[in-house]
Amino acid sequence: MIQVGSTLPEVDFGLLVNGEMTNPGTNELFSDKRVVMFAVPGAFTPTCSQAHLPGFVALADKIKAKGIDSIICLSVNDAFVMDAWGKANNADEIIMLADGNGHFTKQIGLDMNTSNFGGLRSLRYSMLVEDGEVKKLNLEDPGRFEVSDAQSMLDSL
């Protein structure tokens, strides 16, 4: 499992930009940047839609004011779902990144099997990444939402 001090693996993601599919890689998203990334088990799911994403939407300006270049929301969903979820939540300041087949999530060891309702999903977490290296990792126990929220990340910056 990834931990503080680890370097993110090079993976291509899915991202809709102006309605067009793009596939930015880890280097493009994280090299020479300070990035806050948070991951959710699924777009449009209750805790993710009612608390996790909205918290980062509300605090995006304050987080960026701490020297953060970008905020990324990651989920094992496709880019079309992530784009629609971002639009439904006014997440204009957040990169809604799709790990459609879970390659990144599996490589960092933060995957879980939710076969009874979705299959491969990401554990819930937030992390601070500087130039591709994990500097902070706030990993939730399954079913919890206590340490990966936007306010906790803001407080730690």
Results as ranks from 00 to 15, higher is better:
Met1His: 13
Ile2Trp: 06
Ile2Phe: 10
Val4Leu: 05
Glu10Leu: 08
Glu10Gln: 14
Phe13Asn: 00
Leu15Gln: 02
Leu16Ala: 12
Asn18Val: 03
Glu20His: 12
Thr22Tyr: 04
Ser31Asp: 15
Asp32Lys: 12
Val40Phe: 01
Gly42Ile: 03
Thr45Ser: 10
Thr45Cys: 03
Gln50His: 07
Ala51Ser: 12
Ala51Pro: 02
Pro54Phe: 01
Gly55Leu: 02
Gly55Cys: 01
Asp61Met: 09
Lys62Glu: 15
Lys62Gly: 14
Ile71Thr: 01
Ile71Lys: 00
Cys73Gly: 01
Leu74Cys: 07
Ser75Val: 05
Asn77Trp: 05
Ala79Gln: 15
Met82Lys: 05
Gly86Asn: 10
Asp92Ser: 10
Ile94Thr: 03
Ile94Gln: 00
Ala98Arg: 04
Gly102His: 01
His103Pro: 08
His103Asp: 15
Lys106Ala: 09
Lys106Asp: 11
Leu110Val: 13
Asn113Ser: 09
Ser122Tyr: 01
Ser122Pro: 05
Arg124Phe: 06
Arg124His: 08
Arg124Ile: 09
Ser126Glu: 04
Leu128Trp: 05
Gly132Ile: 08
Lys135Leu: 11
Lys136Val: 09
Asn138Ser: 10
Leu139Cys: 07
Asp141His: 04
Pro142Glu: 14
Gly143Lys: 10
Phe145Ile: 12
Ser148Asp: 06
Asp149Val: 13
Gln151Arg: 14
Met153Trp: 05
Leu154Ala: 04
Asp155Trp: 06
